[in-house]
Design a protein around this nucleic acid. Structure first.
Lengths: 185, 185
DNA sequence: TCACAAACAGAACCGTGATTCTGCTAGCGT
DNA sequence: ACGCTAGCAGAATCACGGTTCTGTTTGTGA
């Protein structure tokens, strides 16, 4: 095999990362061994190390994977032309939470406490999501509350902050609720 | 040494648990070895195992330690006879957050995702704190907002829920903010 | 189609770290 | 004051798991 085409290579990487996320959601970041990921992905240890420098690197990729997916969900609302009010926005976000990903997300927070690279990923994605939320809320203020754009942006900041906080708390509750009991899904 | 008096025994246990918390706040739950705790506490491995069944048991004790301390802070407000309004309550709680304990708290959440015993501790303490918050808010509604007790209790529920969520989110932000940079304190 | 280097499987290696074991020591009941 | 036994220190053990190494295979560019 010569160097894989970029598309194929990316496919393998995400195949590994997705298997890792599944393992992590079951057993946590530190309790899943490379052997577990090997079994889950169907690939071998050697292969994994051809795509990721080491386990920490893989953890970071998994963190990015989960967070990006969450941000994407939000991105769709940001582009909507009928912006929902903050309460509605929040409950839609909450409805879109997947328990398994919530668990990995919360684990990621814990890891961010220790690993600077993961911390940067978490902070970056959080900021990005909050910015999107800010856009959503601003759009709502302008379109349905008839605020002037400048004033709306200003008012939106604390609201976006609150929505984000409530969303993250709900993420935590979902993770805790689904731990132990729900091995499926 | 015969069996230590209960007070002394409890003292040793908390000496170990506190050292563990300090280690955890620096390096995370899984990256601190028994040797680290040995060094931090000044005790030996053998001694630690005389007081805790194993590392998981110690982690649970540390989790309980941190959460109970947090709940105690709140407990004082609950007993206050001049109950603050929810915003004030929240900002006082936030002001009382210690970065090191915030980090361990967040790590604990991640662990709760995987370890049922830790999960139970976290859920239990969260519920307890929310109940206290509920009492605080109810007292405020009765005393300064002049609501009838029954109605106040009803109104307090969603408010307490929100305050708790916002508090937890702030805990997360503090943990993330203080990670990496602040090795001191 | 061919050849070569990258991707891959799987075993081997090796360090790390939890736990246990062996004595020694010191606090508490008497 | 004395002795017994639980605390305790510190070394030894032992398994686990991350990483690397050795071939083998296979996809891709020419």
């Amino acid at each position: 095999m010569p160097r894989l085409t970029d598309a194929r290579k990316e496919l393998r990487r995400s195949q590994i990362a997705e298997a890792a996320v599944r393992c992590f959601s079951r057993n946590g970041l530190e309790r899943t061994s490379i052997a577990d990921i090997t079994a889950e992905s169907g690939l071998s240890a050697g292969s994994i190390y051809a795509h990721y420098r080491n386990k920490a690197d893989l953890v970071r990729a998994a963190a990015r994977e989960v967070l990006v997916k969450r941000a994407d969900v939000l991105g769709e609302y940001a582009a909507a032309d009928a912006p929902p009010d903050p309460d509605e926005l929040l409950s839609r976000l909450i409805a879109a939470i997947d328990p398994a990903e919530a668990r990995v997300g919360v684990q990621t927070w814990g890891e961010a406490t220790t690993d600077p690279a993961v911390r940067d990923i978490v902070v970056d994605m959080t900021d990005r999501m909050r910015a999107m939320l800010h856009d959503c809320v601003t759009a709502w203020l302008v379109k349905v509350e008839r605020q002037e754009p400048a004033r709306a942006r200003e008012l939106a900041t604390p609201i976006a902050h609150r929505v984000m906080a409530l969303y993250q708390a709900e993420l935590l509750y979902t993770a805790l609720r689904s731990a132990t009991e729900g091995t499926a899904s």
